[in-house]
Design a protein around this nucleic acid. Structure first.
Lengths: 179, 179
DNA sequence: GAAGATTGATGAATCAATCTTT
DNA sequence: AAAGATTGATTCATCAATCTTC
């Protein structure tokens, strides 16, 4: 990590932008750059907390999804749609969990195209310990207050909805965990 | 990109979290997951807009930095500290710009350890065209209002400051572009 | 033909180690 | 010894193409 600057680089970029182009582009540019940078900061801090458990954030997310599933198992495709990642990434993530003995692939009872990922007993132990570590650092969200975090989530929800992550329907009944 | 869900996966995760653990961890978890996902969405949309110019967002950021520099040139190390990336990433990014003829490496006049990256005439042309395309899509920030974008930037600025990106001093005089 | 998953290749980011210059 | 940059290796994510099953 490079040395700290004596000025805010995003504010400085905003200044340059306003000088050279129209002011109406400043707010979008600064917001986008801020999200990029904070994602990088938070991801690094969480990966640091997860490393002792042999996990990355991507693997942790998949592990928790299995942890929540009714039968502790989900089709790989469903994991991808929940985590909003490509099928290839699901394959990679489950490979990682499987080689560490935290999950295993099992056959789908009726559809032989489908593969299920099932959490192991050790996987549940690691999930619990890793979650405790993430809780201990508040998911790296220091120094934000609960109100600020909630506001953040609310605003970003609009972006996710507009991107088509989910269809804003009703009160959204509990998600189906099983096929 | 997987099919849209009929519920918000982050809200659903929050529900699971509250059930299983304490409520005070719900807001951090949802905020972190939201930032991760929106970063992915925005980055993909911007990369799509930049691809016709042979640019990625990382290369675009470096190119704009050179564009803003007084003499159109900066030491590689300074690029790294501005963009908050490791020296290796700077090498990669400048390699990319150089092979496309958008920038070139030049010797530092006094310190022979230092390499400068200098923007080319074509680099300035591409920077201008790429910026116009990003402006045309408002940096992918639709559907957020200017007020929402500003609020986002303000909250995230606290995170960047706490992470040590910059030292909160004065009104922050104009940044020094040259060594 | 379409759905589900995997393989192989590509691009980006970090880390450790190396090399030159100060 | 320390600063600046590069190389090589590793990890992760995506894309195109392939394979099996429905």
């Amino acid at each position: 990590m490079p040395a700290p600057l004596d000025f805010d680089p995003i504010e400085e970029a905003g200044r340059q932008w306003q000088e050279r182009w129209d002011e109406r582009f400043v707010a979008p540019m600064k917001a986008v750059t801020s999200v990029m940078r904070v994602q990088q900061i938070w991801l690094a801090e969480m990966n640091e907390a997860l490393a002792p458990h042999g996990l990355t954030f991507a693997r942790y997310e998949a592990l928790m999804l299995l942890c929540f599933a009714r039968k502790g198992a989900l089709p790989l495709g469903k994991i991808g749609s929940r985590l909003q990642v490509h099928p290839t990434s699901v394959t990679n993530v489950i490979d990682g969990l499987e080689s560490d003995g935290l999950a295993r692939r099992v056959a789908h009872p009726s559809d032989r195209r489908t593969t299920l990922a099932e959490i192991t007993a050790n996987g549940r132990r690691v999930a619990k310990a890793a979650t405790a570590d993430l809780h201990a650092i508040n998911f790296a969200t220091e120094p934000l207050s609960e109100a600020e975090l909630t506001a953040l989530t609310t605003v970003l929800r609009k972006v996710r909805a507009a991107a088509g992550d989910f269809s804003e329907t009703t009160g959204a009944a509990a998600a189906a965990d099983n096929p």
